[in-house]
């Protein structure tokens, strides 16, 4: 399952989506909206995506992960829109026959997503806002 959604992500649905009779391990990464950045209090986050390309880039990551590791099933779900503290921007689940591959593949997916998928995050503070990582 690869999707973008403006609704809250139901973690168990993502985990269930990678169930596979041949899998001995499921690794899950859950991103969470934290309450501060560099000691500045975060009020909320706003995510926007170039949706068509974000989906195709996520598909590319899934395909690359399946080439590198013996992945049984792999799901990536990312939120768009306004997220509040504690909300979940992203949930990734990977099932593999043995656990080392599940850990490695899951980490590869989130690390690559952060580098290539056209999704942008704006942090809203009490006294301003900033596009995350836009400037060096």
């Amino acid at each position: 399952m690869i999707k973008l959604t403006s609704e809250p992500i139901i973690v168990n649905e993502v985990i269930d989506s990678v169930y596979d009779a041949g899998a001995g391990a499921v690794d899950v990464f859950i991103g969470s909206v934290r309450n501060k950045t560099s000691e500045k209090k975060v009020v909320r986050l706003e995510f926007e995506a170039y949706e068509k390309m974000a989906l195709s880039e996520m598909e590319k990551i899934a395909t690359a992960a399946k080439k590198k590791w013996p992945v049984c099933q792999l799901s990536i779900v990312h939120r768009v829109g306004t997220l509040n503290l504690g909300d979940l921007p992203v949930v990734i689940a990977v099932s593999t026959p043995h656990r080392p591959d599940a850990f490695e593949a899951c980490r590869y997916v989130i690390d690559t997503l952060k580098q290539t998928v056209p999704i942008w995050k704006k942090e809203i503070f009490e006294d301003g806002e900033v596009w995350v990582a836009a400037h060096p």
């Binding site: 170039y50 990312h78 997503l113």
Partner: peptide, 29 residues
Amino acid sequence: FAVDADYVDDDYQLRDKEEIVIIPPVSGG
């Protein structure tokens, strides 16, 4: 930059009426 939802490099030759998308630094996750 992206054309047809795919990254293009600096040497990509643009065509008349083409739609090109500017991708500023991404920050998903």
